[in-house]
């Protein structure tokens, strides 16, 4: 166990160093921008991975929480003149409250039915964003979200925002790792494998599923907040059904039940469209093809798949 902890500490220290090095020495601001988006997507994938990968509860409506985070801060800062730093906890709290209320009935479902339930929820929220135009700006979007500032530090420049986002990612990683390594983490994996068996050893499955759902919603809302203040303009399209599916894809491609899988999945799904511009009209075809190939040859996701390949070559070299 101690071994495991020191290894984790080393991993996170290296991770922090990489963030610092990239942040200071990468000249190209375009890449900084792309990396910032990867950070936001990593938070989303991390949120969903806690729910899907560890607790085994699928959600096809998670973009709703992402949207609540984004629209929450947009409405509070623009309409009500809140400071963004006050809007952040408010946006996260509202996502948590919504998750709690929605979670009570939907988390009684399982499998396909839970998928359908969360799908419906996601669509309702998206329609709300689109049609409640007096508050959300409707289909044409919400303009004029302020930039973040903290005293003398302005987060308008790409570099500072990069550090802000990746700082949150690092905190999120460490927090989630701690949860997973605890008794709660064991119980979550137990729910994944068999709810009745988990209940039989005394895990309050209903309560725990609800708690992890609320946590997952909170992280998603944080990602939504960061997204809104990065692009200053949000529209319902960014939080549609497709966005939910993209989150699920990031988790599955990256590797379920793995913190680093969230990073890999988010990176691949953010970078692929950038790389594939060269294919112009065939872009989506190639994109789909790559996802298919990954799933066929690395069915347990990139993290597990790459580890397997590494272990296999190491064994070969030993012989």
């Amino acid at each position: 166990m101690n071994n495991h902890q020191t290894r984790n500490r080393i991993c996170y220290t290296v991770f922090l160093l990489i963030i610092l090095l990239v942040g200071y020495f990468l000249e190209n601001l375009y890449y900084i921008q792309v990396l910032t988006f990867i950070g936001i997507n990593t938070l989303l994938a991390l949120a969903l991975n806690m729910l899907m990968g560890y607790a085994g509860q699928i959600s096809l409506g998670h973009a709703a929480f992402y949207g609540i985070g984004a629209y929450g801060t947009a409405i509070l800062t623009v309409h009500y003149g809140f400071s963004p730093w006050l809007a952040l906890p408010a946006a996260i709290l509202s996502a948590m409250i919504v998750a709690y209320i929605v979670g009570i009935p939907t988390l009684k479902l399982s499998g396909y039915y839970l998928g359908m339930g969360t799908l419906g929820f996601g669509m309702i929220v998206n329609i709300l964003f689109r049609e409640w135009s007096s508050v959300t700006g409707g289909a044409s979007g919400f303009i004029g979200i302020p930039a973040l500032e903290l005293g003398p530090i302005s987060f308008a420049s790409g570099r500072n925002y990069f550090f802000l986002v990746w700082g949150f990612v690092l905190i999120g990683f460490i927090a989630c790792q701690r949860i997973i390594d605890s008794r709660i983490g064991r119980a979550l994996r137990a729910i994944h494998d068999g709810e009745n068996a988990a209940a039989a050893v005394g895990v309050d499955t209903r309560q725990l599923k609800l708690q992890i759902f609320v946590l997952s919603a909170a992280i998603s809302a944080l990602a939504g907040f960061l997204y809104a203040h990065l692009v200053y303009f949000i529209s319902p399209g960014s939080f549609s059904f497709i966005a939910s599916i993209r989150m699920v894809t990031m988790v599955v491609i990256g590797g379920m039940a793995s913190i680093w899988g969230a990073l890999l999945g988010a990176s691949l799904l953010t970078l692929l469209p950038e790389w594939l511009h060269a294919f112009s009209e065939f872009e989506m075809v190639v994109y789909g093809l790559i996802l298919m190939v990954v799933m066929i040859f690395l069915p347990r996701g990139l993290t597990r798949g790459l580890l397997d390949i590494y272990e296999r070559t190491r064994k070969k070299n030993e012989h």
């Binding site: 994996r189 988990a198 005394g202």
Partner: peptide
């Protein structure tokens, strides 16, 4: 405490962690 039908241990979790789950 129930020892369920068909054992229902948690397959991907280590033996030690399975036992610790019993003391949840």
């Amino acid at each position: 405490s129930l020892v369920p039908e068909g054992r229902l241990v948690f397959p991907p979790i280590s033996v030690l962690d399975n036992l610790k789950l019993g003391a949840y």
